[in-house]
Amino acid sequence: MKLSAVQEALPWLLHAAVTTLWISVVAIVFGQILGLLVCLCRVSPNRALARFGALYVSFFRGVPLLVQLLLTYDLLPYIGIDVPPLAAAIGTLSLASGAYSGEIYRGALNAIPRGHVEAAQALGFGPVAIWLRILLPQALRISVPSLVNELILLLKASSLISIVGVTELARTSHTLAAQTYRPFETYVTAALIYLAMNLVLSGLGAAAERRLAAAGH
């Protein structure tokens, strides 16, 4: 281990980590929105919507992310849709994350006793108020541990987008290692950066859980 090699690689890797981070954050945001929509589809009394939700989940959860990336990036151009690497990366990450998050939300909704909804109905609540005031706040609370897990997986899965040429942390460390002939130092540094980012994520998750616990859960 040569410290000077680490020092040399660090600025590049940190720069690439910023790319990893912002792509992940954008994919997380889109993924959560998609997840919520997918969940609403799946629990909808409308059969077509429920069917669509189920199909969505089985595809994006059943096909490896790498293959989804290649499909988007390499195959879509054949049918005349040109997808820039960044869009392909963010798009596939969000779509996959939407499938997983949607199932997390659905599980959380199922964990809420039916009586909580009935109590609201009996008081004259409409469906929108029931969703906004009774179901979603509780579902979010129940989801926190699984969601943090999902976000960590997403951040790690973002290393796969190196395959379509986005210069994020994994790809940059690979390139650096090849250039400097210092694979050990480079990869260990990259690994530590990933670890640090995920520790921050799980720390935020733990803080969120503590706050909810303080609120009587």
Binding site: A120, A122, G216
Partner: peptide, 23 residues
């Protein structure tokens, strides 16, 4: 739905499992 909600407003209900909202 709105008519049903309006009718339910004036009918109170108490459940075996209380069904308070825990949050």
């Amino acid at each position: 739905g709105r008519d049903l909600q309006a009718m339910r407003e004036s009918i109170g209900m108490v459940f075996q499992q209380f069904n308070l909202w825990p949050h």
